[in-house]
């Protein structure tokens, strides 16, 4: 590989154009380095070179997200680079978000590696750390040399497609990607040694730091349930007998959407579970035990609910990751809203 070609993205401030008053500056591309790019080029030596610098105002980028992204991607494309660097943004919030967003978009559209740098508390770090390598920097531009010192070698590795080491070794913010490897000692020995350290009050490193789970604001109550259209959703794997879409017994890669129009009762002959995580006998005998179609149909007939939605959505929750489950729900909740569904009863095993 010859000299690595890099396009660098910075904001109006680091380009020396101006501060907040110039934050609506539209994307502009200049040949060669501008501002912090000089420090990078010095570090790269003969290995790499910033061939162009794109400058964009932070407000412009964040207020015209789709347009700005498209414009910048067009500019990057022309230079046919091997790598794209955005920032470092330190603790500048909108700059950080812009760096993360444009880096993510460039990687996705142009299929080239990308790199950014931010202070750990920059909101852009949390938003984009799982999709973009973001080097952990100090909280102000005074940390520029320090940031470049970490970013430059990582940039070269990324551009050359070399294996990227662990976050602490390479200096990037952990992306939350779990990777398997063989340790030197078996797990039981590691556990006993960890306990001994914990008992002695010595420091030890947990192999899995506990995550923070998402929270959402509760939706307002349904005003009149007798008028409401109710949909059924389940993670209990209830499917039409024979599992027509082959939803996996565990670690599902998909969900199913099936009509229950005209169905009053789920029977042993018509429905079963695809779920591999619990004793399936009971659900296979009577799937109403997991998906209460019979009762909701009665309630519909009695006028106690407005309508039972004609389709139910189903997957197996067993070993199915939070991220993929979220993506299922993002897709089908749009359909539910479009179909005029007022409320969902979600059942889980």
């Amino acid at each position: 590989m010859g000299k690595v070609r890099i396009v660098h993205y910075i904001n109006q401030f680091f380009a020396g154009i101006g501060g907040e008053e110039k934050a609506d500056y539209k994307p502009e591309v200049r040949e060669g380095v501008v501002g912090p790019g000089m420090e990078f080029n010095k570090k790269f030596g003969d290995d790499a070179e910033i061939v162009a610098t794109i400058i964009c105002g932070d407000s412009y980028f964040n207020e015209n997200l789709d347009e700005a992204k498209a414009e910048v991607i067009e500019m990057v494309k022309k230079y046919n680079p091997d790598l794209f660097i955005a920032g470092p943004a330190f603790n500048a919030g909108r700059y950080g978000v812009a760096c993360g967003a444009i880096a993510e978009a460039v990687e996705e559209e142009l299929k080239i590696p990308v790199l950014s740098g931010m202070y750990i508390e920059n909101p852009g770090a949390d938003m984009f750390k799982s999709s973009v390598y973001i080097v952990s920097t100090k909280n102000s531009a005074a940390g520029m040399r320090h940031a470049v010192k970490t970013m430059a070698p990582l940039a070269l590795k990324l551009a050359k497609g070399e294996a990227i080491g662990a976050p602490d070794a390479e200096g990037y913010i952990p992306r939350g990607i779990r990777k398997n490897y063989f340790a030197e000692k078996r797990g039981a020995q590691r556990a006993v040694e960890m306990l001994i350290k914990k008992l002695k009050g010595e420091t030890y490193i947990t192999e899995y730091p506990m995550p923070d789970f998402d929270r959402v604001e509760p939706n307002p109550a349904v005003k009149d349930i007798t008028k409401a259209k109710i949909a059924l959703v389940t993670s209990g794997g209830v499917v039409p007998k024979g599992n027509p879409d082959h939803i996996e017994a565990s670690s599902a890669s998909k969900y199913g959407k099936y009509s229950i129009a005209g169905v009053d009762d789920l029977t042993e002959e018509t429905y079963e579970t695809a779920h591999g995580g619990y004793d399936p006998i009971y659900c296979n005998q009577d799937s109403d035990r997991v998906l209460p179609v019979d009762v909701l149909r009665d309630l519909e007939k009695e006028g106690k609910i407005g309508k039972l939605h004609d389709f139910f959505y189903t997957t197996t929750g067993n070993g199915t990751g939070v991220k993929i489950s979220k993506s299922f729900a993002e897709t089908f909740s749009k359909e539910l809203v479009a179909d005029g569904v007022d409320a969902v009863v979600l059942t889980s095993t």
Partner: peptide
């Protein structure tokens, strides 16, 4: 995982039976 309205049910293999 963050549900806001939760109804406890019977057992894992038969929540509603």
């Amino acid at each position: 995982v963050g549900a806001n309205r939760i109804i406890p049910t019977i057992a894992i293999p038969y929540p509603l039976g």
